[in-house]
């Protein structure tokens, strides 16, 4: 018994060592830097002044809170809209074999696409010099491409939201298709025979049945879009700026003292994401216990 346990511990040690060193080591070192501990530039004092500076100083507070607001807005809007599009898409095509095959193919193609490529795609299609602007100008809907509404590099993060919808709807779609297929149509048929109309079947049957999976997937997508850097970096504006971009700029600042602020910002993002991950695990465990 004891030998068996030792064997398991020994075989798990190498991967755990790598995970602990890279993940917790990195987090720990970053956390130290966020507390002002930077021996390379002769700073050994440990305090929370970087956190205070980022959140409450005259210089950065406005940037931080508007950035946090933008982060929450972009993550919430993109997650919600991607889930809604995927839900209605999945419901619309689940019964037709031909459309299902095509959509599965398109979505499968979209899923492994890097976010960076999607961001570039958004610029090509939705920017004022993009495909849609030129098309609208050609057919006379607008006077010139410059009259096209600002959808990319705008202060509301519309381009970023579009990129996330484009990308994450595929993730939602695949999860929803598998849930809907495993549920079958019997619940809806039953509700229909009990007098439920189309809207009532959606509201009282489909939505509650898919909601646990949809909600779990939403937390993952929200956490990802909250902490991701490349899409906001490419499609965002200088002000307001999303937190990951702001953190990276602190880090690139020639003034090495700003690294503590950058790390403090990164730790704040990580804490928010971790809260979401813990919430997600709590939710899935609660679901398992319930099942």
């Amino acid at each position: 018994m004891g030998g068996e346990r030792l064997k398991i511990i020994l075989s798990l040690t190498p991967p755990l060592l790598i995970i602990f060193t890279l993940f917790f080591g990195g987090i720990f070192y970053g956390f130290l830097q966020s507390l002002g501990y930077q021996p390379a530039i002769g700073k050994y004092e440990i305090n929370f002044s970087a956190y205070y500076n980022v959140m409450f100083s005259e210089r950065y507070a406005k940037l931080f809170w508007t950035g946090l607001g933008l982060n929450l807005w972009v993550s919430f809007a993109s997650t919600f809209l991607a889930a809604v599009f995927a839900l209605f898409g999945a419901l619309a095509i689940r019964k037709t074999f031909f459309a299902k095959t095509i959509c599965n193919f398109i979505y499968s193609l979209n899923l492994p696409m890097p976010h960076l490529v999607v961001a570039v795609g958004i610029i090509f299609v939705f920017s004022q010099s993009g495909l849609l602007a030129r098309l609208a100008s050609q057919i006379g809907l607008i006077g010139s491409p410059g009259d096209f509404p600002v959808l990319v590099k705008d202060k509301y993060g519309l381009g970023i939201i579009l990129a996330y919808i484009w990308k994450e709807a595929a993730f939602f779609f695949i999860i929803l298709m598998s849930v809907l297929q495993s549920l079958g149509e019997n619940f809806e048929e039953l509700a229909q025979s009990l007098g439920a109309n189309r809207w009532q079947r959606f509201r009282y049957v489909i939505l509650p049945l898919v909601m646990p999976n949809l909600f779990s997937a939403s937390i993952i997508v929200f956490a990802f879009s909250f902490g991701a850097y490349e899409v906001p970096a490419l499609l965002g504006v200088i002000y307001p700026q999303m937190l990951p971009v702001m953190a990276f700029e602190f880090f690139l600042n020639p003034d090495l003292n700003a690294r503590s602020e950058g790390m403090a910002l990164s730790i704040i993002i990580a804490i928010i994401v971790m809260i979401l991950v813990v919430f997600y695990f709590w939710l899935t465990q609660a679901k398992i216990r319930k099942d």
Partner: peptide, 26 residues
């Protein structure tokens, strides 16, 4: 015309009262 399915199909997220009252709620 109301059908009772072979595998009962009680709505898992509703309690018994809510399940039974479903048709009237609709």
């Amino acid at each position: 015309v109301v059908m009772v399915f072979q595998n009962y199909l009680l709505f898992p997220y509703m309690n018994v009262n809510e399940n039974v009252g479903f048709a009237l709620k609709m």
